[in-house]
Design a protein around this nucleic acid. Structure first.
Length: 776
DNA sequence: CGGGCTCGAG
């Protein structure tokens, strides 16, 4: 526990420190950086006026010249023109030529003027700069004209023939514009023709942009490499970084592929040159790495960017935190938060949301509530801290409470959130609560809340629908579920794949395959455009009903419709074949999924581990577990459950208990109801009822809901040992937890209680009254 | 660009 410094008692302090007003020493540098992050290359540079001519003189000249050039080019008065421009000993400045040319409006007219000037101006090289300026103006005009595509390149060829060099602005314009209209080869010719001295950062950026967008990735990388040379003209700048990174962050790269290592390598290389991804891009990169299970890479790149002096914002840290949460890596979560404080990165409301969610998901709901209180207090203080809990944080907590059976508290929290500005309950709030009450069997309250939300004008979502449908199905009220669905559809909430998957699976479970098929057809009909997910749900339902032949025939239908199986479908099929003990089919499926490029996930591994463990092949089970860990997957409660189950079956209860304890201490995976049930059942059978009872208590502490099977296992043990008072106690608890007795419960209790003359207590129990109260 | 709710494994 001590290594886990997420615990609120320790952390609340550091969080409060983080919330203190900050000395803003980083403030100004952040501002500067964000200014540099702009991708706008800045205004086109205009030629400088001649040193001996003031811009004012220049402007007069420009106005007069444009006046003279106003008429159609046939009617130009060349005498006056010559007098104005060339009678002076000083030729017109490049700046004035640029402006005169540009104000002629049309490129054809501008070109005529350009011809006139080139005939009258002194011979090169003296006139080169002037002519280049005029030429730049022609390009700018031509670019705006509708048929510019070929015109631009023709103009370039003309300039080249006449040995009129491009200035930087003209070159950049050509490269960009040609690239934009798809004349990539031409754009690259322009770039490659350029004098190396002219290839400044701006131009190289334009060229790299064109190259990347057209798939000439290797060319781009070559230019980029030159830009990394410390002696080079045109070093990388922020814009270079933006262009290259935006490209790398795309889902696919035309023309080449990049590994995560390549991308991270480039980011760091930019970093060494003082160029960093902006917050959005860094966050995207980290999110992408995390999605591809490269948590370590994500961790490294974030820390390296910090080390190199990049500006890291909370969002990027949040992305990594989310990923660490999913791996239950509390140690590094904590390390990262310490680092954030060190680097003066303020945690924001999302950061707190992630931490609170992480605590909730590990069932450390009270610590989550404590942290929540601390943040709320911080809001009251007048130190300018603006982290107040938002709707998401409230919802996270309400869901956390509901998930551990504290739905009444969840309800109270909803009332509390109404008192906070801008924190009105929303659809998600109600979804959590409805599910909370439904899951403990209190459908009445679930329905009540459902009507309440509608009265409040909060529209139910498809998740609300699915929550209700699932609950009705789990209680065997399949027809009510269908009615509910129809009613919601009338109100405009259409069922989705989850809805149908739930219904189809439920009908398969009660062996009503024809109804399942009918729903399948209905969804195909209603769905408008067919979706593969329709097939998935039926395959899943049939597999779980053990009808593997039917499932496989639906697979063929799916393939005929040109869909392919997804990860979940492979998982349910593998599970189905495992249950049927068809090992050859299991192998076939695993091979097929690998060939299809579908990577097995923890569910796949759990299914296989559980299969081999149950079959008594513990060695194979452990071997698959190692492979799972090698693949970067984290063992889940199901994984541990499979191992624990295996050792229980094996008679090795001590080993099972050892794994169970390690779950809490080493792995931080919260055990679930099934694991408790296995252990309680096994311990009772071995006559270790005391230990079994202590496990029930630990369930309460950890917020794991017992179910009917939990109590059944316990009652069997209590009956063996004739612990009647204990039995009454747990009968009350069963009522408290809204666990309905099933036929097994009734069998055990009827036999036992009739034998000892306690039939009255049994009667009250069946009617849902507390048993202990009946004695009073 | 980052955090919340339903369903698919044991």
């Amino acid at each position: 526990m001590n290594t886990l410094s997420l615990s609120a008692s320790k952390h609340s302090k550091s969080f409060l420190n983080l919330l203190k007003p900050q000395t803003s020493k980083t403030q100004s540098s952040i501002f500067l950086l964000s200014h540099h992050l702009s991708t706008d290359p800045g205004p086109e540079t205009e030629p400088n006026p001649k040193p001996n001519q003031s811009p004012k003189d220049d402007d007069l000249l420009i106005t007069q010249a444009v006046e003279l050039l106003q008429p159609n080019e046939k009617d130009w008065n060349f005498d006056q023109l010559h007098h104005l421009l060339f009678s002076n000993s000083a030729a017109p400045s490049p700046r004035s030529l640029f402006h005169i040319t540009r104000r002629l409006g049309a490129s054809s007219k501008a070109l005529k003027f350009f011809e006139y000037v080139s005939e009258n101006v002194a011979s090169p090289p003296d006139s080169t700069v002037s002519l280049s300026s005029s030429f730049q103006a022609i390009l700018e005009l031509a670019k705006r004209e509708p048929t510019s595509q070929n015109k631009l390149y023709d103009l370039y060829k003309m300039a080249k023939e006449r040995n009129i060099p491009l200035n930087i602005s003209a070159a950049a314009l050509l490269v960009r514009s040609l690239g934009m209209v798809g004349m990539v080869d031409e754009a690259l010719i322009v770039f490659n023709d350029l004098d190396p001295g002219l290839k400044n950062t701006h131009l190289r950026n334009a060229a790299i942009d064109v190259m990347l967008k057209s798939g000439c990735v290797d060319d781009a990388l070559k230019v980029l490499d030159e830009m990394f040379d410390p002696k080079a003209e045109g070093r990388v700048d922020q814009v270079t970084g933006d262009i290259v990174l935006s490209y790398l962050l795309k889902r696919e790269w035309p023309g080449r592929s990049f590994s995560e290592e390549d991308i991270v390598g480039l980011v760091l290389k930019f970093g060494e040159h003082g160029v960093f991804p902006d917050s959005v891009k860094l966050t995207k990169l980290i999110t992408a790495l995390c999605r591809n299970r490269k948590t370590n890479k994500a961790w490294d790149v974030l820390h390296d960017v910090m080390k190199l002096g990049g500006d890291v914002k909370a969002a990027s840290c949040n992305a990594l935190l989310t990923c660490l949460t999913r791996c239950n890596d509390f140690k590094r979560m904590n390390e990262l938060m310490v680092k954030m404080k060190e680097m003066d990165i303020h945690p924001d409301v999302v950061t707190f949301g992630i931490v609170i969610n992480s605590l909730c998901k590990s069932r450390r709901i009270d610590e989550a509530l404590e942290l929540f209180e601390k943040i709320s207090e911080g809001r009251e203080k007048s130190d300018g801290v603006s982290t107040e809990p938002d709707v998401v944080i409230y919802n996270t907590l309400i869901d956390g409470l509901c998930k551990v059976g504290r739905q009444e508290e969840g309800l109270r929290l909803m009332e509390k959130m109404r008192l906070q500005n801008g924190c009105a309950p929303n659809t998600v709030t109600y979804n959590c609560l409805i599910d909370g009450f439904n899951k403990v069997g209190d459908i009445e309250r679930g329905c009540e809340l459902f009507h309440q939300m509608k009265e409040e004008g909060i529209s139910p979502s498809v998740i609300t629908l699915n929550t209700m449908v699932d609950c009705l199905c789990k209680h065997g009220r399949l027809n009510s579920a269908i009615d509910f669905l129809n009613e919601m559809q009338r109100d405009g909430v259409k069922g989705n794949a989850v809805t149908y998957a739930t219904l189809i699976t439920s009908f398969c479970n009660v062996n009503n395959i024809s109804m399942a098929m009918e729903l399948f057809e209905q969804m195909l009909r209603d769905g408008g455009s067919t979706d593969a997910i329709v097939y998935y749900s039926l395959i899943s339902g049939l597999s779980q009903a053990g009808r593997m032949d039917d499932a496989i025939s639906v697979v063929s239908k799916l393939k005929e419709a040109c869909f392919s199986l997804d990860l979940v479908s492979y998982n349910v099929l593998i599970n189905g074949f495992c249950k049927k003990n068809k090992l050859d089919k299991v192998h076939e499926m695993v091979q097929e999924m690998e060939a299809a490029g579908v990577k097995p996930d923890s569910v796949t591994y759990n299914t296989l581990i559980s299969y081999f463990c149950k079959a008594g092949e513990l060695t194979t089970g452990h071997r698959i577990l190692s492979k799972m860990i090698d693949e970067g997957l984290v063992p889940t409660a199901v994984t541990f459950g499979a191992l624990i189950h295996a050792y229980c079956l094996n008679g090795n209860t001590d080993k099972a208990m050892k794994i169970f304890r390690e779950m809490g201490s080493k792995s931080k995976v919260p055990p679930n109801t099934v694991i408790y049930n296995i252990l309680i059942d096994t311990l009772c059978k071995k006559n270790e009822v005391e230990l079994a009872i202590s496990l029930i208590d630990s369930m309460k502490d950890k917020g794991v809901r017992p179910n009917t099977a939990t109590f059944n296992a316990l009652f069997k043990g209590l009956k063996e040992n004739n612990l009647l008072e204990k039995a009454f106690e747990f009968m009350d608890q069963m009522i408290e937890h809204a666990c309905n007795p099933d036929y097994i419960t009734m069998e055990i209790l009827t036999e036992w209680l009739s034998a000892v003359g306690e039939t009255e207590k049994l009667r009250r129990f069946v009617q849902g009254y507390e048993v202990a109260a009946s004695t009073a």
